[in-house]
Structure formats: structure tokens, C-alpha cells
Design a protein around this nucleic acid. Structure first.
Lengths: 140, 140
DNA sequence: CCTACATCCTCTAGCGACTAGAGGTGCAAG
DNA sequence: CTTGCACCTCTAGTCGCTAGAGGATGTAGG
């Protein structure tokens, strides 16, 4: 039950110090106890929570989604349909994002390949941007 | 040389009205002439510029990059090395982003597949988030 | 015990690229 | 002439932090 400082918590969780304080401010993290000199004193369970949050952020979940996921974690006997739904929604988002980035990549490659490294008035990069009709992908 | 209102410009360019005003504010778009009643009056060339900007934004270029690209477009006799460099840098970013999203997709798929739709304490979605060691991809 | 220095504290402001809203004016149709 | 939409300016809010000011605390060495 040894408590640690915010700096140590940052080091162990991989979440930066101001970000930890920010998470406390928005209520993702409970307010920890304080030392005599008013410094935050974290417990191991706070570290788990921080790691959970960091991981979820890395997976691109929004803070509101993480709030829900955390409350689910706090109530382990509930059905996990919500967690499943949140993850599935995120998966759909990611798949969509990948698709549009692939189209974009193709378009950028064409621009770069077509650039003859001459003058701007012959440059496909500028040309494609100026004239949307030249895009191969018209989704956007 | 018939001038159009900001609303019409928005409709034709696909850029929203407040966004057009915002672009003017940050200097991406020149200040248009005004009608008697102080309303913005756009010309066809402004429409081209707006479309250029919209397209570049859709391709994920930052406003600063677009500023450079626009100034290149305005000086067509310059060498196009800058445009090429900007597009290439963007291509590298996009490729990187696709790679990390693919890893993410794999992880999310595992989470969703592993979810037995039972209770939270058996749910892989929550479990994986809580325990980073379970990730197949340790890049993050 | 004193000093140096890292770390901590709170608070406010800034980032990018918009978006929303308040409060008011212009303009075209009926 | 009035209705009602589109326009105007201005400020503040969004998201998820990050940076900095200005001060207090904690620790290690001399």
C-alpha cells in the first residue's frame, strides 16, 4: 500500500504529469489523497486505471467512451454489451478511416509521381488540387 | 464576371459559410469586395481558390501547408520542388497512419471477437484494455 | 542547518481548425 | 409592408491536451 508521487505514476503509466492532473480535472481519475505538503499520493489501483486510460486513448477511444468503459470495469457483473458496442463502433470508424486513407494515399502517389520536378505550372501536385475532376477517387 | 454571395459560394465550393469567413480571417482567402449593404461578393477565381483549399483539406494538408501550396499556385513559374516536398511529406504521414491503424484494427478485432457477450468480468474488451501485456502489437 | 535543485502545486492561456450562438442588418417575395 | 431567410460582427466553445508563470515542497550534499 505504498503511495507514489505523480511523477512516479507518470513514469510507470506512461501518462504525462500534466495529463494525469487533466484526467483528474475532467473526472476520469478520482482525486488521490494528499501528502502533508499537499502533493498527490497515488495507489497501485490508480496506476491500473491510468494504464487502462492510456491504452484506450492509444486505441483512439474518445474520453467519453473511456468514461463508459471505466464505469463498466468498475461494475464487473453487468452484461458487457456496452463495451462490445463501443469497441465495435470504434472498429467501424477505424475501418472507414483506413479506407479513406488508402484512397488518399493513391491520390498522393499519383500527384508525386506526376510531378516532373519542373515548374509549378506543369506540376501535377498543384494541378490535381486545383482541379478536383482529375481525382481518381471521387468519394470526397 | 457576375459576383455571388457567400451562401452561393459555400454551395458551389462545398465549404461552409462560417468556414469561408474563417479562411478569410486567417488570410487563406483574400477579402472579397462588398455589396452596398456590406455583404461579401465573390468572383469565380475565389471559387477556384475555395475548391483548391477544400480539396487540400480533404487530403489532410494542414492550413500552413495549404498556404504554401496556394502561394506556389500564384507563382506558376517557380520550380515545383516545394509542392513536391509537401506532398511527399504528407504521403509519408499517410502511410504511417495507415500502418498504425491496421495494427489497431487487428487489436480491436481481437477484442470484439473475444467478447463472449456475457458479463463484464469475462469480457475481453475490458480485459485487453486493462492489461496491456495481452496486446499482440506492442508498438504503442 | 543551509543551500541547491528537482519536483510538486494552482492557475491561466494557447494549440488547430473550426463551430455555435447572440444580437443585429440586408434583401427579395408576397 | 411585412415576413423570413441570409447576411453581418463578435465572442466563446469544442477536444485533448500542452506550455508557462509564479510559488511551495522535498531531498541530497556540504
Amino acid at each position: 500500500m505504498k503511495k507514489i508521487t505523480i511523477g512516479e505514476a507518470a513514469r510507470q503509466s506512461g501518462v504525462k504529469v500534466p495529463t494525469i492532473r487533466y484526467y483528474e480535472g475532467i473526472g476520469l481519475l478520482r482525486e488521490p489523497s494528499r501528502s502533508e505538503g499537499n502533493q498527490r499520493a497515488y495507489e497501485p489501483s490508480d496506476l491500473n486505471r491510468l494504464t487502462f486510460i492510456r491504452h484506450a486513448r492509444e486505441l483512439g477511444f474518445e474520453v467519453e467512451a473511456i468514461r463508459t468503459l471505466l464505469s463498466l470495469q468498475d461494475n464487473p457483473l453487468q452484461p458487457c454489451a456496452s463495451a462490445d458496442a463501443i469497441a465495435k463502433a470504434r472498429l467501424v470508424e477505424v475501418e472507414q478511416r483506413i479506407r479513406s486513407l488508402m484512397a488518399l494515399k493513391a491520390e498522393l502517389e499519383m500527384m508525386v509521381e506526376g510531378c516532373g520536378h519542373g515548374r509549378v505550372d506543369q506540376c501535377r501536385v498543384i494541378e490535381v488540387l486545383a482541379d478536383h475532376a482529375q481525382c481518381t477517387h471521387h468519394g470526397h
